[in-house]
């Protein structure tokens, strides 16, 4: 990397971090308001309310006003304390980081799978135009993007059990030689059917075509230089990082379902449980971490953009 590129990156990163902090503030505020408006007074102790099954009167009155609750939460956040889960009593930060790593593994893994499927197809059809093979592959991407993800998960599990005699349970205490396979399966399912393959193919293809047609590439081609080398940055790297940044929220959503099907101890499953328990410290923690993941994706995109095209930093 050229030295001159470093300075814009540092300014960019600091600026982006500032924006990210502002956004996280907004995200937490919105979630807090939703929780405040929801029935079942989330700010009373959840335990008291679970207990209502036995004795409904036990719901404690909500202490203080909602905005003072929010400020208390913010103050604790600055101290690095996200509170304790109302359901299990465990510290939220620790819990969310623990499951967040599993979700990150699932998310990144499935992004890779998506790209592994989409990129060759996109490159093929961008370079060759719409040949029958390219067309078939494109149609294939439409098909997989339109499958309900849990149903595909069931199909995979069914085949795994009945064809290979393997029961895909990752994270077991009795790990066997097939554990890698158990870890692969959910990643594969989410990667195939998070509904983004066809969009990725389409976008990448269009971007590459556009770049191939640009003057500098045409010139390069006329000179006999490698088109690929010249178009790599603009036609490939930038679109891919853009896709990654834009699709992280979708994949996190798909993870909620896949984690349930494959018994994956991740953030989505925890969010599902927490939303029903109104476990508000945990919900806040999860949305915060999820939003951080999303912001990280967009930061990556900006950084790549700056490296490839330093002029963009001045925009």
């Amino acid at each position: 990397m050229k030295l001159s590129a470093v300075r814009p990156i540092t300014t960019l990163v600091t600026r982006e971090l500032g924006i990210a902090a502002l956004l996280l503030l907004g995200v937490s505020f919105v979630v807090f308001v939703i929780l405040y408006l929801s029935p079942g007074s989330p700010f009373a102790s959840i335990v008291a309310r679970i207990e209502m099954a036995a004795e409904p009167g036990a719901a404690a009155s909500a202490p203080a006003t909602w905005y003072s609750q929010y400020f208390i939460w913010l103050k604790n956040l600055l101290k690095g304390n996200l509170g304790n889960s109302l359901r299990t009593g465990l510290p939220v930060l620790q819990e969310v980081v623990r499951v967040g790593i599993n979700t990150m593994y699932l998310t990144i893994g499935s992004l890779l799978v998506t790209l592994l499927i989409a990129v060759p197809i996109a490159v093929f059809s961008a370079r060759r135009g719409m040949t029958p093979t390219g067309w078939l592959m494109t149609v294939f991407t439409y098909v997989v993007s339109a499958l309900p993800v849990f149903w595909l998960g069931y199909i995979f599990i069914y085949i795994s059990i009945h064809r290979f005699g393997l029961f895909p349970l990752a994270f077991g205490s009795n790990a066997g030689p097939w554990n890698w396979f158990y870890f692969m399966l959910p990643v594969l399912v989410l990667g195939i059917s998070n509904g983004t393959v066809s969009e990725v193919v389409r976008y990448l293809r269009e971007e590459m075509k556009r770049v191939f047609d640009e003057e500098y590439i045409v010139t390069a081609r006329a000179k006999g230089a490698s088109v690929w080398k010249h178009s790599f940055k603009e036609g490939f790297l930038i679109p891919i990082t853009e896709i990654i940044a834009a699709k992280i929220p979708f994949i996190l959503g798909g993870a909620v379902v896949v984690e349930q099907v494959f018994n994956w101890p991740g953030m989505g499953r925890m969010a599902w449980q927490a939303a029903q328990d109104r476990d508000y410290p945990l919900i806040m923690g999860i949305t915060l971490v999820a939003a951080i993941l999303v912001r990280m994706g967009s930061l990556l995109q900006r950084v790549v953009l700056i490296i490839v095209n330093p002029r963009a930093s001045r925009e």
Binding site: I157, I161, F167, Q260, V261, N263, R269
Partner: peptide
Amino acid sequence: PFADQNIMGQA
């Protein structure tokens, strides 16, 4: 713990 009863039955 299981999150899906169908999968638990198969397990």
